[in-house]
Simulated assay, not measured.
Amino acid sequence: MAEKKVWIVEDEAIIAMDLKRRLQGMGYTVLGISGYAEDAIEKIREYTPDLVMMDIILKGEMDGITAAEIIRRELHIPVVYLTAYDDESTVHRVEETEPFGYIIKPFEEQNLRMVIEIALHKEVEKELEFFAQEVNQYAQELQNTTNLLSFSNRKRTVISEITLHDILNKIMTIQGCLDLAADKKVDSELAGYLNEMQQAVTDIQKLIRFTREYEKLGAEERTWVPVSDIITTISDEQLPIRNHCSPLSIFADPMLEMVFANLMDNTLRHAEGATEVNLNCETNDEGLLIIWEDDGTGIPEDQKEKIFEKGSGKGDGFGLFLAREILSLSGITTNETGMPGKGARFEIMVPNGAWRIESGNE
Rank of each mutant, 00 (worst) to 15 (best):
S246P: 07
V115P: 01
L19Y: 04
F321C: 09
I357N: 05
L23T: 01
E88L: 15
S188L: 10
S328G: 03
Q205E: 14
G64H: 04
Q140L: 13
T90Y: 08
N243I: 05
R242H: 14
M26L: 15
L112I: 06
F260C: 04
R356Q: 14
T48G: 01
G360W: 06
I208V: 12
S34Y: 00
L51K: 04
S34I: 04
F107L: 11
N111C: 00
F260S: 01
P340G: 02
P340W: 06
L31C: 11
I230G: 07
H121K: 15
E108L: 06
N144H: 10
G296Y: 01
S312T: 12
I57C: 08
I250K: 00
Y28D: 05
L256F: 05
D236P: 00
I290G: 02
T275H: 11
P99G: 07
E61T: 09
V80G: 03
E96L: 15
I167L: 15
F131P: 01
L217V: 10
D63Y: 05
I14W: 02
P106R: 12
Y36Q: 13
A16W: 02
T333G: 10
V201H: 07
E117Y: 03
G343V: 03
K216N: 09
L75F: 12
K20E: 06
D39M: 09
L322E: 08
T232E: 15
S34P: 02
D295P: 07
P240H: 06
E305Y: 05
F318R: 05
P300W: 06
E336S: 05
G218I: 07
E305V: 07
A37Y: 02
I299K: 03
K43C: 07
K122F: 02
I44F: 02
D179W: 05
G60K: 03
